[in-house]
């Protein structure tokens, strides 16, 4: 079984560390690549189609290019328009959640305040998408608010 390729775009170093540790902690077969903002994310994704991951975790509040803009850019790119994008943000504002779904996000995950919760959330999403990936239901939008 191939490793699930995950791309995390988040400007906060601590959060990236939490994420990496939590992902490691749930002991699933994943491969994590980390980037700092929307711009570096787009550069990475556009430089080589081989870079296209199975799942992107996208923070919203980032410098240079924020999560909203990055999401739009992803959906504008033909070979990325079906890419699974999970929003991963501190914001619990209804407005932000709605906006990301309008712009084509698949899942919205609010950054939790305990490490255990984070592990639980990641496990749920990664596992779910694991099955999703294998069953090849790529075209369906999967809306989930956690």
């Amino acid at each position: 079984m191939d490793k699930l390729r995950i791309l995390l775009v988040d400007d906060d170093e601590d959060d990236r560390q939490f994420f990496a540790d939590a992902l490691e902690g749930i002991e699933l077969n994943t491969d994590l690549h980390q980037l700092e903002n929307g711009k570096s994310c787009m550069e990475y994704l556009l430089s080589d189609t081989d870079n296209t991951p199975d799942l992107v975790f996208l923070d919203l509040n980032m410098p240079i290019m924020n999560g909203f803009e990055c999401l739009e850019a992803i959906r504008r790119t033909p070979h990325l328009k079906d890419l699974l994008v999970a929003i991963y943000s501190t914001s619990s504002a209804e407005r932000d959640i709605e906006e990301t779904f309008e712009k084509g996000a698949n899942i919205y995950i609010k950054k939790p305040s305990s490490f255990n919760e984070l592990k639980k959330s990641l496990k749920q999403v990664v596992k779910m998408n694991w099955a999703y990936h294998l069953n090849d239901f790529k075209k369906e939008n999967f809306l989930l608010k956690i």
């Binding site: 601590d14 959060d15 939490f18 540790d21 501190t90 950054k111 939790p112 305040s113 305990s114 490490f115 255990n116 984070l118």
Partner: peptide
């Protein structure tokens, strides 16, 4: 959230 996160870790 970060404070809480570090505390939980």
């Amino acid at each position: 959230r970060k404070i809480q996160m570090f505390v939980s870790r």
